[in-house]
Design a protein around this nucleic acid. Structure first.
Lengths: 159, 159
DNA sequence: TAAATTCTTTAGGTAAATCTAATTTAGGTG
DNA sequence: CACCTAAATTAGATTTACCTAAAGAATTTA
């Protein structure tokens, strides 16, 4: 059974809502995925037919065992990638988050696992090198933040 | 003007065909992207309207300056990611290729650039650590290759 | 150069994912 | 407990990206 990228995103959103709030509501899924409620209902029907979601209209919404497994796998890739981007590459969190949000749906198991191992290995073998790399780039970002603030002020003055 | 992931893939395919063969043919684009020729024609019309492709039916197909720029940017991300996966993480080339093929369409400029810098930095600062990491994992792959060959043989015997 | 083959294109249709507008249901409140 | 509001659902339409079958153009070859 094929599961699309978008369906994976629905499952992940539901998984996170359940973890955070204990209930999964159409409205909240819609908000998280930036779509309108009817789109969510459509998706729920399909996912329910695929046996990934327990759904009957107006009733409580739950992931099935299978749905939860997929969501967990996806979300663990999300965390792994985000951490790698932030802690090893020194990417700003919002950007790291966005990159992870996409790649998590495509990255092969072996690549994900290798990234995990690499991060561990490199932090054990040469922690200082990583630290230095991060440090250099975070300084760069600070500078460009200052610049963009100045730009903002300029914008306000000219508009 | 919005350009979709799929459109980017068309541009990249055309760019590579042009580089390799000097001409871009519907049939070859179709083959590369695993679609049928009519789908390619549809795409060409849209890309032409967006000013990314020079296309008139039955005439030669070319990327415009703008189209070529996008394709080059995408392809350079492709190369960068593939190299990172292979040379730093030690991922098998076919898998590295597939992962890169997806992520190249989503990765932020800053992340791509940072990966490039990281690869350079780490290879300069601790080349031996990288070498060792790769070595350990390539050994693992060799073993699993052997295993899968044995599995294949078993399959033949039982089928 | 005419015929055969291959390539490209059009026509018409499908599936996934979205939307708006209108309707139905559920839950909270006077 | 009836009403009101907020949430969920249905109906119907749109867009993107694909497909098959059939037709038309270009190229190769006998």
């Amino acid at each position: 059974m094929e599961i699309s990228k978008r369906e994976e995103e629905y499952l992940e959103a539901m998984y996170l809502l359940y973890k955070k709030k204990g209930v999964i509501r159409v409205k909240d899924i819609a908000k998280k995925l930036r779509v309108r409620p009817p789109s969510v209902v459509d998706a729920l029907k399909k996912l329910s037919e695929k046996g990934l979601v327990e759904y009957e209209k107006y009733d409580r919404i739950l992931l099935t065992e299978k749905g939860r497994e997929i969501a967990e796998k996806t979300y663990s890739k999300h965390l792994l990638l985000t951490e790698f981007f932030i802690n090893i590459l020194g990417i700003p969190p919002e950007i790291a988050e966005e990159d992870a949000c996409q790649f998590e749906h495509y990255v092969h198991e072996i690549t994900a696992e290798r990234i995990r191992e690499f991060a561990k290995y490199i932090q054990e073998q040469c922690p200082y090198v990583i630290k230095q790399f991060i440090k250099e780039h975070i300084e760069k970002e600070e500078k460009s933040k200052d610049t963009s603030k100045i730009e903002e002020v300029k914008d306000k003055h000219t508009s």
